[in-house]
Design a protein around this nucleic acid. Structure first.
Lengths: 243, 243
DNA sequence: CACTCAAGTGTAATTGAAACACTTAAATTT
DNA sequence: AAATTTAAGTGTTTCAATTACACTTGAGTG
């Protein structure tokens, strides 16, 4: 079989996954302590080596499955990282993916056995190698993507309230939005189906649950979609100048 | 050195470059006939294997240099392609880049010695492997990118006219724009410096040359930029529904 | 029964984008 | 030298989308 490219170099190829979750009003990252050398014990994103017989997507799904026990995860390729000395062990090319998971769905125990932990994106520690770069790139990509695809739903439980959805958008963009404008705009897309049931944890009055309409979602995925709002005047959560 | 990952698989890693140019009012792609097996003689984008001692960017620049003789090329990573059987020769992962070059700057002779040829994006032939996929993804990325970064200049000669610039935008987006709105919007960005000289090839009256202002360009690259216009009513160049 | 807390709701003002047609400059033709 | 041709150049009005903004409602708590 190896008849064509015999003189060319071969490389280790890793897959690294930036895993986002949303919990308690915060956008979070699933991080873990690396269990092998080099850099054993330091914080990193979840990764593994690409195997001979699997595609990039398959590799990423395998790694996500290992960590979370979940098979049906929203996932996209982010970018490849290939500086010669990025991995001090050996020259390794990393193909990074980003993924969105519903924190409640997640089998936390499984993640725990890997030493994994949810960390707020506002408190990301020093990570190994170029993983902080990957995370920043992932965040940027997520922020861009959510404008043109309603992927917020991938981070929420099946039933959710409008205040929850708004707080998710605010957590992702690190800026507050006007409640009336947000509700108007998101409802007029038709993406949300109102339930009769109310969520009563976070207020006395209770907020109606919604589910997102999978038909409309598919439609928008094909036809295109645009959902963006300026932040409330004088209310950037941080000194955060997004572009 | 090879002490850490000895049990892991290694892979051939290729770099493939989608090279865009603009000439005669058309957006073009630099394609070439493959000079080695497998698929020798078929159309492909320019590529090569990643070497042990070079980063991804360095690899891409080496390949662009080989083909065009140019060192200072606008270039971005596109995406990695890693289906197990994408290359019928052997399992090879390709990391694709896209690049913009000024056709006139290009040492055409050098490209010719590689059997390279500019092909309009409206007439892209069947390419080897998954290269047609790469090209489509590259086009999509270029179309998205030009909204938020004024990279059109990378495709034009140093001095260019407003009609030329508009025709570039129209070629990229495959739709016609209103002349008055286009000029107004692009001029009010301040990105363009008007020259005293006129271009006289394409009209009797002649059109003023402009150069783009590098200071402002840098500023916009940092601060963010947005330039998008709807197509002229009833004037899509093709039945092209862009999203 | 008063109070508290977050959920829920509509309109006016402003801004930004799109639509639209004639004049000008210079070369070419008669 | 006058008439014709060709593409360049130029402002204003209209319309649509987004933003700003404040009070009422419902239900649990003390």
């Amino acid at each position: 079989m190896e008849i064509f490219y015999i003189d060319e170099d071969k490389h280790y190829v890793a897959i690294d996954c930036i895993i986002f979750g949303f919990d308690a009003g915060e956008l979070k990252l699933l991080l873990l302590k690396r269990k092998f050398e080099p850099a054993k014990g330091e914080w990193s994103v979840m990764g593994g080596f690409l195997k001979r017989e699997e595609s990039l997507d398959e590799g990423a799904r395998r790694i996500l499955l290992q960590l979370t026990g979940l098979t049906d995860i929203y996932m996209e390729q982010l970018q490849s990282f290939g500086d010669v000395n990025r991995d001090p062990g050996e020259r390794t090319i990393s193909i990074a993916f980003w993924a969105l998971i519903k924190v409640n769905d997640n089998d936390i125990k499984l993640a725990k056995t890997h030493g994994a932990q949810w960390v707020s994106i506002e408190k990301i520690p020093q990570l190994i190698f170029d993983h902080n770069n990957m995370v920043q790139k992932g965040l940027k990509t997520l922020r861009n993507k959510i404008v043109t695809k309603p992927i917020g739903f991938e981070l929420l439980p099946e039933k959710f309230t409008l205040p929850q959805l708004q707080s998710l958008y605010e957590a992702i963009n690190q800026e507050q939005m006007d409640k009336r404008n947000f509700r108007k705009r998101i409802l007029e897309t038709g993406l949300l189906d109102k339930m009769e049931e109310k969520e009563k944890q976070s207020s006395k009055k209770g907020a109606y649950y919604y589910m997102f309409n999978k038909e409309k979602y598919r439609l928008f995925a094909e036809m295109g979609f645009h959902f963006q709002m300026k932040a409330k005047k004088d209310s950037l959560i941080k000194g955060n100048c997004q572009v």
